[in-house]
Design a protein around this nucleic acid. Sequence first.
DNA 1: CATGAATGAGGGTTCATTCAT
DNA 2: GATGAATGAACCCTCATTCAT
Lengths: 184, 184, 184, 184
Amino acid sequence: MAALPPAARILRTAARLFYQQGYHATGINQIIAEAEVAKATFYTHYPSKEALGAAWLAQQHEAWVSWLNERVSPVSDSRRRIAVLFDLLEVWLRNNDFRGCPFLNTNAEQPNPPAALRAIIQQHKAYLRDYMRNLVRTALPGRLEADRLALAAYILFCGAIIEAQAFRDPWPVRTAAQTILGWF
Amino acid sequence: MAALPPAARILRTAARLFYQQGYHATGINQIIAEAEVAKATFYTHYPSKEALGAAWLAQQHEAWVSWLNERVSPVSDSRRRIAVLFDLLEVWLRNNDFRGCPFLNTNAEQPNPPAALRAIIQQHKAYLRDYMRNLVRTALPGRLEADRLALAAYILFCGAIIEAQAFRDPWPVRTAAQTILGWF
Amino acid sequence: MAALPPAARILRTAARLFYQQGYHATGINQIIAEAEVAKATFYTHYPSKEALGAAWLAQQHEAWVSWLNERVSPVSDSRRRIAVLFDLLEVWLRNNDFRGCPFLNTNAEQPNPPAALRAIIQQHKAYLRDYMRNLVRTALPGRLEADRLALAAYILFCGAIIEAQAFRDPWPVRTAAQTILGWF
Amino acid sequence: MAALPPAARILRTAARLFYQQGYHATGINQIIAEAEVAKATFYTHYPSKEALGAAWLAQQHEAWVSWLNERVSPVSDSRRRIAVLFDLLEVWLRNNDFRGCPFLNTNAEQPNPPAALRAIIQQHKAYLRDYMRNLVRTALPGRLEADRLALAAYILFCGAIIEAQAFRDPWPVRTAAQTILGWF
DNA sequence: CATGAATGAGGGTTCATTCAT
DNA sequence: GATGAATGAACCCTCATTCAT
């Protein structure tokens, strides 16, 4: 672990703590203590906590996209792809470390989040929306309401995440999946 | 404004600040300053910040339920009721002060919210879920999948709120409404 | 317990808490809460916390003196009396609720204790010193150094209490008793 | 005064205030104000008030031991050594700043002192007990009851301190000294 | 490139007391 | 005789950040 350079150690520690405890609830002191880095070293690598938060979300976005693509792209059938997507979601939230979506959580923490964070959050959400749109469009060739259903699928997807988080139960994911798959 | 008794002034101020800035981001000091109350007076009425947060959410739940019922119950047709529900949602989030759902926000702020807050949040969510269930069941008499659709409608409802919050745009509400209304 | 009048309930509760937690560490709020008395009721009976503390110490002095006299005066032999005195001391500090001497503790809490408390503490100590003096004098008729030994016995007595408190062990009491009894 | 580094300034100030006013009665705010240090600077050097209290007592122990040894060890005769010990005690408590023994006071303040403080207090007391034991044993070679007298001497020593504190008069020290010296 | 010391502002909570009723 | 509401001051501690080295 001490093999990692300081910047990476900081980011890895912050990722764990921000997600498990929340962005606001996690202080710089805890991060540098657990990353075993001096305070000034932290500020040489990240100009502020906000910048670290942005780096965290950016990295989360990359990781999440990769994770999905690696598992979804091998599947050729469009309908199956959507099914796989929700299967993955259920795997994720059945994990003991599941604490909801980092983007939605961070967005909800402060109703007016810092600009740097907001930008990445919106970027992530737009990406996911478009990703779902393509998936559903491909699965519903020629259907007039395909676009609307695609957006609805996206809303169900995100809604399932926060409701699973709120109820601490995966039922919303299965309900959302069944509903969407029923459209094909 | 000084006409209100301190306890009410505190709650009113806290409601405003908790919603606009977030529960965590709002400190006791700011609340008592804006409520023009001494710190010890605050603790005479609320044993802790957490208790105040619980009182706030409880009051929000009551207000929300009343607001909905007053406008939905006069409508007799089941399908119209659902339409009205989403119309109200859109009215709400078109308001400049809209900052998302206080319950979802507070739940997302800290991955492990204080027990007192969690209890009210879950209560509220269960209420809303059952409310939607009744609405949809009544509108879909005899449909086998009525229950699943009802839950899906609930997920779409909540998902629309957080997506409207994230995108700062009401499109998710309209998409969700159209999708649900298409089931009848 | 609710049968007792408020003033007595307050004093009884304060006696328990002051002794178990310390005078300083015990707040008015805890006292009135556990005595089930309103705050203003407290101040109608005691003008201040200091006055309550004084009442507590005065009552402790009375109780302690009575307790000793009832058990020591029936004994006729002077030497036996001293032995009984230390036996009682050991009984006291073997009790699970033993927290040292309320007078010495309160005196040690603030190096400049409030005048009202200081007065009672000194009164108590002077009484105990004279009590020991009489006991030893009677047991050592005609000994020239009787007075000095009496004071030494008093110092050993008090020293044994604080050392038993510090070591959480009754050995100092037995050592003190053996030493004194060896003088006769 | 500003020449001293902050950590030393804090400890020096705390030593003065803890001793003069008591540990509990002295707040962090007063310490940092009189040490002319920012609050966060305090917590850079001491993780808590308790840690500062422990540092204070540890330093007191060192200073006390040094002070005694420097003056007692040059004396060769065992009996004289004990006499010197009590002479030093009397010098100490004739000082206007005398407020009793920091260890006994802190131990008596709260019936259950913080663990960190308790540890040092017990350590100090055990040291002093053993110190007296060696002194008396050496002065009473071959006496069977030497051990018991040594412990009695220790109790008289400590008892003299608290009684001198309580009566605000050095008589207990002289009484204790005469009694012990009479054993040789 | 890396560091520990120093900071002002604020975190939530409790203190002993007074007041109008 | 009894009450709960109201208070300013103080409690111990943590925040994100900057600075000289």
